[in-house]
Write a protein that binds this DNA or RNA. Structure first.
Lengths: 202, 202
DNA sequence: GTTAGCATGTAAGGAGTTACATGATTTT
DNA sequence: AAAATCATGTAACTCCTTACATGCTAAC
């Protein structure tokens, strides 16, 4: 049950939750999600096969459509459950460079508190990276050539930019949560202003 | 000869070209180059071992220094040659997301025409990605939720920013090449005014 | 009727991680 | 002397890619 999910497995389940598809198209959609280069078939098909074996998707071959096999993959109930399970978790893998993008792309199916946890986790990872870059720059002033320091400068700038992107998203998410709560609780309740903007855990 | 060079191998050779070092420190420097998280020992030591076996580095244990083994790795003549060889090449791997950073960090040891080729290769890869993102956005207007389109928007913005960073670097590199050529050719030659007056430099 | 492109798959291997194992040195 | 940190190393495993192999359909 809920066996470990690689980023790819999650991505496939997420795509199939939108609509049943055959592998070739799945690959196209997957790579246009980000600008990423095409996923190899050597990854995709074994992954689909494993999902079928696990009972998370069914592989149907529509009869007599012409056009060769074109196996259409579709989520099962168990697959939907598994996907919901994966989307509910917010462990460190969710803000791991390679996984974050797909997690974000599936935010529409993710609960708001989980969204916030993922965004914050990602942000704190990037903050750690920014710190590393700053101390490296400070420490290495003497022994660094222009290109190395330019690389670090640019890396720091990109990182900081992404941090502020995340901060905006987190704020928006919080606001949306709050107005939702207000609507649910009491339409005339004034906002309590106390939200203490906690640290993020390491 | 000059057997295949993974990004890691190149990085290690590049670091050791600066100064002999032991593995533990190598790891630290390697990861502060970018903000990357620490390279695992399970990668580093086998790589060093392979380089020793290939004759590109020597592993010396300075006697009686205290402090346990602390094997100091140092480039051999063959290693320097191999490094020069790797730095001279500008094949597609040089602008592969994961390799570009280390290639860039070693630009001080790279010939200027090679630098330009790498920067251009990287840029054209990013342009391809930007194109993919734009067409995906245009095509998917109907069936995309807010988060997916926000991801693509942000990805496109970052990509465009990096493209213009690269463009600036390419221009600078070209200008430097040109003034070098002018100096070599005729010291009294007036500047030909054709210089396309790139964006303002930082 | 042969080439080009769609579509699915398998086998081998590369590159790196985690987890484990060991030992020396410094700190508490 | 126990604990933390420095330092090196190995084994198993994951995830993905490349290269190969197959067959069907559409176009020339």
């Amino acid at each position: 049950m809920t066996r470990r999910g690689s980023a790819l497995e999650l991505a496939v389940l997420g795509m199939l939750a939108d609509a049943p598809m055959h592998g070739y198209e799945l690959r196209k959609r997957l790579s246009e999600l980000q600008g990423r280069r095409l996923l190899s078939f050597g990854s995709l098909y074994p992954c689909l096969k494993a999902l079928v074996k696990a009972g998370h998707v069914t592989a149907e071959t529509p009869a007599g459509t012409g056009r060769r096999a074109r196996i259409v993959y579709q989520l099962t109930a168990s697959g939907k459950e598994h996907l919901a399970d994966l989307l509910g978790s917010a462990d460190a893998t969710a803000w791991n460079d390679d996984t974050f993008d797909i997690r974000f792309a599936l935010f529409a199916r993710t609960a708001s508190p989980t969204r916030v946890r993922i965004l914050e986790g990602r942000r704190s990872r990037l903050e750690e990276r920014a710190l590393n870059l700053r101390t490296a720059t400070a420490r290495g002033i003497q022994r660094m050539d222009d290109y190395t320091s330019e690389l670090q400068r640019h890396g720091l700038e990109s990182t900081e930019r992404e941090i502020s992107w995340l901060t905006d998203l987190i704020d928006k998410e919080r606001l949306a949560q709050q107005s939702e709560r207000e609507q649910a609780a009491a339409p005339t309740d004034p906002p309590s202003t106390s939200a203490p903007s906690s640290e993020n855990e390491s």
